[in-house]
Nucleic acid binder design. Structure first.
Lengths: 226, 226
DNA sequence: ACCTGAACACCGTTCAAGT
DNA sequence: ACCTGAACACCGTTCAAGT
């Protein structure tokens, strides 16, 4: 009746594949070939096990991506947060942006799989910093949540758009001659067409972020028309 | 040597499958089962032809999606554009947003497949309206393109985030107890946790858009600190 | 308890062959 | 010119069977 035991106190056949090995191998595959190429079958092959084995460690592929994402965000170093509420929001949002921009697949997972609710504690400090910064600036809870959600949408959108624009610039050239705008119906685009590629390479995140924060925190009615 | 001809003047075997039929059937499948379920094979089955047949009418699946998207945007009715530049930007951007929000898969195609460069003329009037509105407000070409790109990122992000939040609210509940924030490390989130679902249901697009426009068009240095 | 091979129900795409 | 069946090289996931 002596059951086989492992150092960790579990019973049964000792595991050959750990959660840690799986996540490490998955990161390796993503970094090498891009996140579209991460499949259960390739990951299993990389680990030298059969594909069904992985289902003992993850519920399904979405669960794997979520674990990967949480592991990734738990690694990021937490910058010092300024006391000034506006600056605090900028720092937290920029950190959020940089994390996603460095690993754009994370943004795809986050939009294709749900929302911030899927993240665990180690990454929620960024949400906390933004919401508390808004409230310390005099915002109501309603406004504070609006500020966070506005920043979140802008951040996710910027990361996704830029990631794909970079990757598929060749495809764009194939479809559209940027100098081919009809000056009759599209006069402004025709006039600036040749400069567009250069202009579109500029980083718009900081200015857009500042505009959103200023505009969403301003007392209602105080905008623009002074 | 008499070659078979069709009414359209082409030669060879008369086609049984038209571009129009393909796009109509594709729309039907998307509306019925969602855009994730649109596959070449299902579409061919819906049309009663073999899957390889479709490759005579589309280059590949991306090309099919692009044709679908261009057909969709060519249908939208063009609202009257106000003379006031700021109002013109609002109207064009809101139209862009509403089109995407009504058919969120379009936003996914646009981010997963490239950029505005993939669209053809019938949808470029929205880009023209935004860029010209910015220039008429006194912006430089650089600023005008920044305004458009900022609006574009915000719009795409909002549509994608909202589409998935709606669809997967159940999944979120499964993972995260919204009332479970640690008041020690996340005091603000813990305080507003129970109100979050209600607050997050608000439509942030109009306010965010206004904030972006005002902030990006403001002369540099004039922001916030008055 | 963990791992396996085989199978199920799919994909997008290519290609030689038919009409 | 258009359409076909068969095939290629994949997917995620399940399940009975082994150790």
């Amino acid at each position: 009746m002596a059951r086989p035991t492992t150092p960790s106190g579990r019973t049964g056949r000792p595991r050959r594949t750990s959660r840690e090995q799986i996540l490490t191998a998955a990161r390796r595959l993503i970094d090498a070939d891009g996140w579209e190429k991460l499949t259960i079958r390739r990951l299993a092959a990389e680990l030298g096990v059969g594909a069904p084995t992985l289902y003992h460690h993850v519920r399904d592929k979405d669960d794997l991506l979520l674990q990967l994402l949480n592991e990734h965000t738990s690694r990021i170093e937490r910058p010092p947060l300024p006391a000034d509420p506006g600056a605090r929001i900028m720092v937290a949002a920029t950190t959020m942006h940089d994390v996603l921009a460095a690993w754009p697949w994370a943004a795809e997972v986050l939009t294709s799989d749900g929302f911030v609710g899927l993240l665990d504690e180690p990454s929620l400090w960024m949400v906390e910093a933004i919401v508390s910064g808004a409230i310390d600036s005099g915002a109501t809870p309603e406004q504070a949540v609006d500020v966070f959600r506005g920043i979140w949408c802008f951040t996710v959108g910027e990361v996704l758009v830029r990631a794909h624009t970079d990757r598929q610039r060749a495809a764009v050239d194939r479809y559209l001659d940027l100098t081919g705008f009809d000056p009759g119906s599209l006069p402004t685009l025709a006039a600036i067409a040749e400069h567009w590629p250069g202009l579109a390479a500029r980083d718009i995140y900081p200015d857009g972020l500042r505009a959103l924060i200023d505009g969403l925190l301003a007392p209602p009615g105080a905008a623009g028309d002074s």
